[in-house]
Amino acid sequence: MLELTAIVAEVRHPTAHYRVIGFHAPAIAEPVRAGQFVNVLLRPGPLLRRPFSVYSAVGGVVEIIYRPVGEGTALLADLKEGDRVSLLGPLGRPFEFDPDWDSVALVSGGLGVAPMLLAARDARDAGLRVTWVHGARTVTELSPESAGDRSVIATDDGSAGHHGSAVAAVPDGVGGVLACGPNRMLAAVAARWPDAQVAVETYMGCGTGVCLGCAVPLRAGGYDRACKEGPVYRAADVDWEALPSHLHYAAGA
């Protein structure tokens, strides 16, 4: 894990709903794997860093995807090429690819698309066929970018693709399932595929394992840390009833 000053390399607005910002950070871009995150310090800005899944890592540039919904993301939106921020990363435990799989479904809801481009890359590197399944409330909230051998879209209001949830739209016969999205959606993933790997979202203090703020309740009892043992969990291991589903800054949660 590194702490480094990174220069903003690019800013993109792929749709009105999503923004992408890239930081020149080869020391993080090289080792990062899907599901891991960076903790971004904004100065001037809020006291604590803000955690973001790494969206892509190409050419030494670490990209994150976000919606401007709170104080931290509003400041992110103000950053321009050449600005500097402090990044801490790569943090957390990544998705793991079972050698017995021949294919994998990447299931995302809304901003849960955040780790999935990297997941598609890592899956291809592992020789897997990739089914990309992405859902949102409505067509304008769908992520603009996808990857994989097959793409399935779902919207809650039926304005594009399958009418219903991303979880319901996943075809049968996929090998592994990796999912990210609102915690409510991940609970549905756990019900259908107990062995799925899910990346959860929690409030986070330090991102490095010392503050114990990002507690994830476990079915086996007790809590562990989203930033250290997570954010990727076996779906059935999380006590979804006790994991807050509503984060005030979370999109679509």
């Binding site: 809020p46 006291l47 604590l48 929690t202 409030y203 986070m204 203090g205 503050c211 114990l212 703020g213 990002c214 507690a215 994830v216 309740p217 009892g221 007790g222 809590y223 006790a242 994991l243 807050p244 984060l247």
Partner: peptide, 23 residues
């Protein structure tokens, strides 16, 4: 001790509230 249920922390102006519960 297992500590308190989440959410355990929230950021506030120039500060943060925590209720870790001595996990």
């Amino acid at each position: 001790r297992i500590g308190n249920p989440p959410p355990r922390i929230v950021e506030t102006p120039s500060g943060m509230l925590n209720a870790i519960g001595l996990q």
